[in-house]
Nucleic acid binder design. Structure first.
Lengths: 252, 252
DNA sequence: CGCGGAAACTTGTCTGAACAAGTGGCGCTC
DNA sequence: GAGCGCCACTTGTTCAGACAAGTTTCCGCG
């Protein structure tokens, strides 16, 4: 039997308010009911109501100051993790049609850069995938991925033009949990220029990715290069702030 | 007279614990004192202590579950917001010596781009700052900022070569709370090339910033261009994941 | 000696109350 | 009619107590 207890009161209050906001019942800029009114409505004490409001404040949904009632700040909350992992899903959420042209799937020895990122010996076998990603048919991003061999072998029974590699791996029991993304800019090399239909040397937005599974073992190293006139990254720093971080490149 | 009241108790408790963690007094993996012990130590009620712990949990510093004491998760008091806001502070944390050369501080009509980002009329007065930021004396980033007039005027009694603009504004009662950062790549223009000592057209990592104060009013629009061989951005997608987000550029 | 269960301890949830501090509006005065 | 000040209302901070629910420890029983 599935146990289905009623969630704690402060969560119910928070959910109710979240619902009203996302439903547009409380539009952006509108003032929320005062704490006293919420207490009455939900038959809760002020402490409980404040706990719910703190949660919303934390998500950046509401803001406001002492003396005046809280104000709705944003309507939607993003789920950035999936977004960062899956080009396919991200494109669909944006209302665009994702596409891909797989240029190469190969098993070969790891390059020095990939070996270092994956923590394996140079030349140890990895599976490399080179794919051109499209948005509404327009070449948008060139993806170079290196998977450690036990995971990469799963890619050979996968039609790489069918969509998301991550979803395929997820179905095979590989659950990517965490990733570190490094973002910088780089001039297009000859391969980039050809596939992205831009001039060699044109600035590209590069995202390098080191993905790990649930146990923390490194699984994938990726180098994605985006046309900056088509795609950017955004980060929101709300009050408490917990997003990106500058990192200085090693001057090795 | 500068008013210097003691901060609220729950903030003092949170700061004390943050300090112990970052000082290594409470290493990663260690269990925090129980709530009852903290109550005694700080002569506070449990509600107050819990408020402090909630703040730390929120910052990802501690974790834990019901029944067992909270556990230190990270040592780094990654304050990504400040980090993203203040070049000066970020550099110091990295152990580098920040520097700046102010090229221009001017009050003029807002450019179309800045006006749109700030939500004001084109040509409305703004204060523009153009600064070259250095790390250990090396030109690293070129910063173009536009402040709305009521805030920007505060910059004229500020020595722009003395350090952080944000710290100066903070001391004047302007509390920047939230910001949206948009990251892309762009080729260096003539001004960039001259000050950053690179070739014109070389790829630069660009971070555009729209900062708002506690009330949600837009205060600053910034365009920072980094040498990608010196600085990158990183984003960690950990368990809960709540970091960055891809965004498609408008094809206006 | 090993295992189960009770007891002690811990955090989570919730209530009720009180005072401080900031905001906004109403009404009174000039 | 304009301006000032007070008052009502709101959120922020803090306390004290109570019960629920999960974890750990340890003792006693088999």
């Amino acid at each position: 039997m599935v146990k289905s207890v009623t969630p704690p009161l402060h969560l119910r209050v928070a959910d109710a308010l979240r619902g009203r906001i996302s439903r547009g019942q409380l539009p952006v800029g509108a003032a929320l009911p005062s704490e006293a009114q919420l207490c009455e409505e939900f038959t809760a004490s002020r402490g409980t109501v404040r706990q719910a409001l703190a949660a919303l404040r934390n998500e950046g949904l509401i803001g406001g100051g002492q003396g005046k009632p809280p104000v709705v700040r944003q309507a939607a909350v993003a789920q950035p993790f999936e977004t960062f992992l899956s080009f396919t899903r991200w494109a669909r959420e944006m209302g665009r049609e994702p596409g891909q042209r797989t240029i190469e799937v190969a098993r070969r020895g790891a390059s020095p850069v990939a070996a270092d990122a994956l923590g394996i010996d140079e030349g140890a076998p990895v599976v490399e995938v080179l794919r051109l990603r499209l948005l509404d048919g327009i070449p948008t991003m060139l993806e170079r991925s290196s998977f450690v061999e036990p995971v990469g072998r799963l890619l050979f029974d996968f039609d790489p033009d069918s969509g998301s590699i991550y979803e395929h791996l997820l179905g095979r029991g590989v659950d990517l949990r965490a990733a570190r993304h490094t973002i910088d800019a780089i001039g297009a090399d000859a391969v980039d220029a050809e596939h992205l239909t831009i001039a060699e040397g044109a600035p590209l937005l590069r995202e390098r990715r080191r993905a790990t599974d649930a146990t923390g073992a490194r699984v994938e190293y990726g180098d994605d290069r985006y046309r900056p006139d088509l795609v950017t990254f955004t980060i929101d720093n709300a009050q408490t702030g917990r997003a990106g971080q500058h990192v200085l490149k090693e001057t090795s």
